[in-house]
Design a binder for these strands. Structure first.
Lengths: 206, 206
DNA sequence: GTCTATACTGAGATAGAC
DNA sequence: GTCTATCTCAGTATAGAC
């Protein structure tokens, strides 16, 4: 990778983490990086593709950790059912670990979520990993209808991305914003109970 | 309200619902509405304030329905504990009802969420209503520590806003995208179990 | 009070010279 | 690979007509 490309990535990561994607202009980035405006389009094609490169560089290690944990849990379960909470932990805890090692990661992910850019990025790069987790949850909850499972995964994704960003309204109780582990553990408890709920509990009342 | 102001609101609502906020320029809106560019800034001040006016016009009836349901539930409960699921329903079902009567509402709210604009709007106009729901949940779950309750409300908000927009990845299972009632009922079941979960279940394992 | 015409600043993107 | 110059389009601000 050329020096110019590296400088653009590093500067973009820092500025987007600090100010957000929409509020960070390419001109601001290139001024701080000391490179030319056209170099961004030469190396990345567009502002959106630059963001993509920045996010992938941060998120790839997290996804690797997630899959490693999931591999271990599935090996332990053998042909039996994996534990729902353990599967959820393998998905959520690596985020917290990455956040503790690399606080900018949280800021960047929080920004992406706050600006509604996560679905775009997730769809491009994380879909395969998510499908593996859905399969693990399916084995953990064999009685749950497939459609119900998919909706609950949907709910989980919403709660998770909300939790990864410290929305201003909740900032006062966030404690150390970079220490995501406690809140991720709360989330595992919450989601675990939701996933275990009987699918028909709310529908038989009619 | 003047005719010009009305036309701007109607056109902005339609175009933003179709294309999103960022992708809809003021020039596009005023061209379709047949009004002058400066009229937008005269009546609304800025593009963001225009969005605000559009959203409030749609969301005010939903909030009124939510509070009416909550009033009824709290009256029924008297001095006892309200039912968690009923409180959640009073928050979630009016959204589905509005969606069935007025499909553009869902599209607009989905766009707002997808572009990360909900926290901004919620903070401005819905905060008081949310606080009433938090109070109702607190009475419904007297054993739950306050901090845990606040995090679970946080999780709920994430799952709900995710559910209100049909993310492309889930579009295939959305059925009629405007019929949100089934998915909101699934969400009530899921969240109800999460809220009822023991707060210490996930923390004693250490 | 309402609205129009017009100009200003800054954004992302691109063509072509080097 | 890199840079200069330029393009189009965005949101915003203001002066003044009705």
């Amino acid at each position: 990778m050329t020096n110019t490309k590296q400088k653009i990535l590093d500067t973009a990561e820092r500025l987007i983490g600090e100010r957000g994607y929409a509020a960070t202009s390419l001109r601001h980035i290139i001024a701080e990086a000391g490179v030319n405006l056209a170099a961004v389009h030469y190396h990345f094609g567009s502002k959106e593709d630059l963001l993509d490169a920045v996010v992938v560089r941060k998120a790839a290690p997290v996804n690797a950790a997630r899959l490693a944990r999931l591999d271990r849990i599935e090996a332990e379960a053998g042909s039996g059912r994996p534990d729902v909470e353990k599967v959820l932990e393998s998905f959520l805890i690596p985020t917290a670990e990455m956040a503790n090692r690399n606080p900018e990661f949280v800021r960047l992910m929080g920004r992406m979520h706050a600006e509604g850019l996560m679905p775009l990025i997730v769809g491009k790069h994380f879909q395969a990993m998510v499908l593996r987790f859905v399969a693990a949850l399916r084995r953990a909850l064999p009685g749950l209808p497939e459609e119900e499972l998919m909706w609950r995964v949907h709910f989980m994704m919403g709660a998770m991305s909300q939790t990864m960003c410290s929305a201003p309204i909740f900032a006062r109780m966030a404690g150390n914003p970079a220490d995501m582990e406690p809140r991720m553990r709360r989330l595992v408890t919450f989601l675990g109970a939701g996933f275990r709920a009987s699918a028909t509990a709310g529908k038989e009342k009619k």
